[in-house]
Structure formats: C-alpha cells, structure tokens
C-alpha cells in the first residue's frame, strides 16, 4: 500500500460517498451541491491528515529507540 494507491482509495471513497448521498437523498441541485461540498471537504481533510503522517514516516530521520530497562 503505497502513497498513491491509498490516495486513490481516499479518492474513491469520496466518490462513492458523494454518489451514494446523491442517490439516497436527492433534494434539488443546491442541496446536492451543499452535500458534495461537505463530502469533498471531509475527504480532503481526512486525506491530508493521513498523507501528512504517511509522508513523515516515509523517510525517517529519527528511528524508534527502545526504552531499555528502567
């Protein structure tokens, strides 16, 4: 599971969520756009959070140093 493949998963999840919301509650164009905005914002937020943490661990400058006998 590399960076791009997981990103793709996030993207697909966003698409699936917005499609299903569109199919479940279709309440006119302005509401649909509102729902779409919410889902895009949520997906982007979640993806950013994940991507930041993933990237930070990709090339570690410091590594875990175990806490030995206390």
């Amino acid at each position: 599971m590399g960076f791009w493949s997981t990103t793709l998963i996030f993207f697909l999840a966003g698409v699936v969520a917005s499609l299903s919301l569109r199919l479940c509650c279709n309440r006119g164009p302005s509401t649909n756009l509102f729902h779409l905005t919410l889902i895009i914002t949520a997906t982007v937020c979640c993806w950013m959070m994940w991507a930041i943490v993933y990237l930070a661990q990709m090339n570690p400058l410091i590594v875990p140093v175990l806490n030995g006998e206390k």
Partner: peptide
C-alpha cells in the same frame, strides 16, 4: 536501546507506526 530500530519494511500504511509508542525518540 542505543542506536534504535531500523526501518525494515514498507511504511506503516495508516497512521503512526505502533512501534513509536513508549520509545525514547
């Protein structure tokens, strides 16, 4: 406990690697 562990596999796919917990670093 001195030099630390080494990255042996691919990056932990989701979130912070569990190995970090309780380490000195």
């Amino acid at each position: 406990t001195t030099e630390g562990l080494i990255k042996a596999r691919r990056t932990y796919p989701f979130g912070v690697d569990p190995k970090w917990h309780g380490t000195r670093s």
